[in-house]
């Protein structure tokens, strides 16, 4: 469904040039939920921006449903990291959610009911008339997710989606993502620095090296579904996997060895 091939993104020129991601390749199948995890500064967000068409890659390419991504493609929605700032404070929650529908849905009433349906789907029924700043952080993030889901995208990209909410809210939002995924035919790519989250949510975990980000490992997560915050996180496989991912993310010694190997491969 999504194919990333030898993607490299460099910022700047000459001696001050900085490569954020280097030769990253992976594919995501229809309906998969893949998380991308790595140490801070590994170019996770850059990678996501390239996939969403917000930033053009320096080299390599991204194809979505066999179509090369040049601008923001149709059928793709993004949930940005700074959800509080990405919602428009002058629009009501409903108008925020209905905003992306202006391109696709004719008629105010139709957009309104689609927005209300999306709000109900994220557990915020009846909040449409409020303003975003009247909601808690977790509810704001639910609004941002509702806005992304309103146009019924085929691919949902999430950039550190739950970075600034408390632990309990975070777990609720993680379960919301899993619920959305169960209810819809949707492919989800989540960028996170939280190792537990990456394993808990995903079918596959892609581990990036420290900057410039390269794919260090691509691990299958074979945990039973549906996932459960207590059961799953106590499962021996979960503990094993999170240790594995944690070791891959943390061990700096391996960076040079593995990136060297990756460079000679390409």
């Amino acid at each position: 469904m999504l194919e990333v091939t030898d993607l490299t993104r460099t910022y700047g020129h000459g001696p001050t040039a900085y490569t954020a991601v280097k030769d990253v390749s992976f594919t995501v199948a229809q309906g998969e939920l893949v998380s991308i995890v790595g140490p801070s500064g590994c170019g996770k967000s850059t990678l996501l921006r390239c996939i969403s068409g917000l930033t053009a890659p320096t080299s390599g390419r991204v194809t979505l449903r066999d179509v090369p991504v040049t601008g923001v493609p149709d059928g793709l929605a993004v949930v940005l990291q700074e959800y509080g700032r990405s919602l428009f404070p002058w629009l009501t929650v409903r108008d925020n959610v209905a905003m992306p529908l202006k391109r696709t849905t004719r008629g105010r009433a139709a957009r309104r009911s689609a927005a209300d349906a999306a709000l109900a789907a994220v557990g915020l029924p009846g909040s449409g008339d409020k303003y975003p700043w009247q909601l808690s952080g977790g509810m704001q993030q639910r609004t941002a997710i509702a806005r992304a889901l309103a146009a019924d995208p085929a691919l949902l990209l999430m950039d550190e989606p739950f970075g600034s909410v408390d632990a309990q809210t975070r777990e609720d939002l993680e379960d919301l993502v899993l619920q959305v995924r169960r209810e819809r035919d949707i492919t989800i790519l989540v960028v996170t620095h939280d190792i537990d989250e990456s394993v808990y949510l995903a079918d596959r975990v892609i581990v990036l090296t420290a900057g410039p980000g390269q794919v260090r490992a691509d691990l299958n997560v074979t945990l039973p579904s549906p996932r459960d915050q207590i059961e799953t996180k106590g499962h021996p496989d979960f503990v094993h996997l999170r240790t594995e991912v944690s070791r891959l993310v943390r061990s700096r010694d391996d960076v040079t060895v593995q990136s060297g190997a990756a460079a000679s491969d390409s």
Partner: peptide
């Protein structure tokens, strides 16, 4: 204007 808001406008393909 907040760049995040302009980015959001781009991400949702506003005219």
């Amino acid at each position: 204007v907040d760049p995040v808001q302009l980015e959001t406008a781009r991400a949702f393909k506003m005219t």
